[in-house]
Amino acid sequence: MTLTVTNLTIIRGGLPVLADVSFVLETGQALILRGPNGVGKTTLLRTIAGLQPSLNGKVSGAQDQIAYAAHSDGLKAMLSVTENLSFWAEVFGQSDISHALVAFELENLSDRLAGTLSAGQKRRLGLARLLVTGRPIWVLDEPTVSLDTTSVAMFAVAVESHLKSGGMALIATHIDLGIEQANVLDVTPFIARNDVAMGSSVEAFL
């Protein structure tokens, strides 16, 4: 299985931010996206996940294969850890959540309400959600925010075992995760020029 992104031009607020982005992600590979704040990493990930339309170019192999995780984890404060995870598991047609609890060391917290967890624990629960989706392509936007070094290592292990079992990962992050199979893509060279922006803004709004 392959995720292919060809000449993708992505837009934010009607203006192109990154132009002609192309890469190929094969089974078992991870791609780390780097670039300064505001360069369009989040927009690129949302476009690949199908949450936003692109100006041109195409993404193939992503349809119904992506598990997306962004800054907000979609957790409900008034539901317990188990209830939150089981809900997402059921939405994605899975039933087993125990491996996700184990991978992110949430077993002891399983009956706690998500609202009473610390920021790092919430983040771990949000990442555990990826494991219960059963989807092969993980698209992660700053997954390590508010995680301590132990939890980051925990996350790296989860990503590596996902890659080994035939998954893929596309991660926007600023820190070194220490994942062996990972390639790094700096998106700075793809920044869209302003003259392109002027010409396509009308079209982008339509």
Partner: peptide, 16 residues
């Protein structure tokens, strides 16, 4: 509420 905590984004990428 579902918009603020990101649930809608995740539901939009779900099989449903």
């Amino acid at each position: 509420l579902d918009f603020e905590d990101g649930t809608l984004d995740l539901l939009a990428t779900a099989p449903l």
